[in-house]
């Protein structure tokens, strides 16, 4: 465990706390994408299947359970609990999940076939591909609302920071671990995912620097 990885994980936890706080404080689900949360839940459930077969560390297991549990709780709130259910605007969150799920599954099957992976690795690879695009529905919703609420903006910022820090973590590990296993699929997806946040970061920092409302160009 290095400082970049730990900071990345904490940034991820922090983003989830901010989203929960945002729902609680604003008492609505305006501008929050349920589709992104559902994609993240699928990502976590498929990636952490190894919870059932092997133990890495207490830290790893606890974080995995925390990610699955908190994301499931957010989905439950938006889907079934008031005032979130009635304020969630389904028509703005129109991303079709199958457009992300099917290509990722096909890619994961091809990758697994080439690498001779088993069942658990197939789902692990699927989750790597899916995580890269899981933020897309949320970015689309933001684009439609145009003006970005502070807390929603911070949520996406910390989620993006988590991915950026993971890239630094890989660089650090590549230099410091003698037999570090390079996984180029993971690297490629990590870069794609971070790149998706680049545009958001640009406007986020611009709004922080100049003050005033944070809005995205339409």
């Amino acid at each position: 465990m290095n400082i970049f990885r730990f900071a990345g994980d904490m940034s991820h936890v922090f983003s989830i706390i901010i989203l929960l706080l945002r729902l609680h404080v604003a008492k609505n689900a305006n501008g929050v994408s349920l589709k992104t949360q559902e994609l993240f839940l699928i990502v976590f459930c498929t990636r952490y299947l190894d919870l059932l077969i092997r133990f890495i560390s207490l830290y790893n297991s606890a974080m995995k359970i925390l990610y699955i549990g908190s994301t499931a709780a957010i989905i439950h709130m938006i889907r079934y609990r008031e005032p979130y259910r009635s304020t969630y605007d389904r028509s703005q969150d129109s991303f079709r999940l199958e457009f992300a799920l099917i290509p990722c599954l096909v890619l994961a099957m091809i990758t697994s076939l080439i690498r001779g992976f088993g069942f658990i690795e197939l789902f692990w690879t699927f989750s790597i591909y899916l995580e890269a695009v899981a933020i897309l529905p949320q970015l689309i919703v933001l684009q439609r609302y145009s003006v970005v609420e502070n807390l929603t903006g911070h949520y996406i910022f910390f989620l993006g920071a988590y991915r950026g820090l993971y890239i630094l973590n890989w660089i650090y590990r590549a230099y410091t671990e003698k037999h570090y296993h390079h996984d180029y699929v993971v690297y490629a997806c990590g870069f794609v995912q971070t790149a998706l946040y680049a545009d958001f970061f640009y406007y986020y920092f611009q709004s922080k620097y100049y003050g005033g409302t944070f809005s995205l160009p339409t």
Partner: peptide, 10 residues
Amino acid sequence: ERREGAKDEL
């Protein structure tokens, strides 16, 4: 912590 590249990450 067992080390296995990206698989021991989150």
